[in-house]
């Protein structure tokens, strides 16, 4: 699904990523570990097509509608409600039976009761759940998750555990985290940044 050869990315004079090479098969699970600022986020942004490499080669065999991405920001409009946000993206992604899918995801991540509240009034943890809903909405082939457990409480983390376990082996994952214990059982490949 993804192959990277001596991938490099620099921002001005700062080198964010230095000659990274790996291959990830379809339905594989790549666990990316490393300290803050070690380049995990940069790698995921490159895979998502949000940034371009400055050296090396990267091939991602997935179209944009087949990629689900969770980043540092929840990527939802604060002035729109949870439901409006997900409905907007369901339409942009052409999700078949979008309304049912949105409802199911909101239910699963414990946000159904709050569907009519502005995303701007959500707590960090609720925003993270909403971000996960947004990323899973179109049932993507390739999931790029950057610190997906960030800000989640115990219940939210359990929901995500279950979701990852269900999908692992059937979808391709790249998960970046500084705390690999939660998902290490699912990993089929690892990449450690210093």
């Amino acid at each position: 699904m993804i192959s990277a050869r001596r991938l490099g990315k620099r921002f001005g004079r700062k080198r964010a990523l230095d000659r990274v090479s790996f291959d990830l098969a379809k339905d594989g699970f790549l666990l990316v570990t490393g300290a803050n600022g070690s380049g995990k986020t940069t790698l995921l942004r490159l895979c998502a097509g949000l940034a371009a490499a400055t050296s090396g080669e990267l091939e991602v065999r997935a179209r944009r509608e087949e990629i689900g991405y969770v980043g540092h920001e929840p990527l939802v409009y604060r002035e729109l409600t949870a439901l409006e946000n997900l409905t907007l993206f369901a339409r942009l992604y052409r999700v078949p039976a979008g309304e049912a899918r949105v409802g199911m995801l909101l239910e699963r991540f414990g946000l159904w009761e709050e569907r009519g509240s502005r995303a701007g009034d959500f707590s960090r943890g609720m925003l993270q759940r909403l971000a996960l809903c947004r990323a899973l909405l179109h049932d993507p082939e390739l999931l790029l998750l950057d610190e997906p457990y960030n800000a989640l409480d115990a219940r939210g983390a359990e929901v995500l555990d279950r979701e990852l376990k269900d999908l692992a082996g059937a979808r391709t994952f790249v998960v970046a985290t500084h705390d690999p214990d939660r998902v290490s059982a699912l990993a089929t490949a690892r990449l450690a940044f210093a």
């Binding site: 097509g49 949000l50 990527l75 939802v76 942009l92 992604y93």
Partner: peptide, 17 residues
């Protein structure tokens, strides 16, 4: 403004439109 505050431009760029 709305896109800037929440890096929503990334959110729109990720979408297949």
């Amino acid at each position: 403004q709305a896109e800037r505050q929440q890096s929503m431009l990334d959110g729109l760029l990720l979408a297949p439109c």
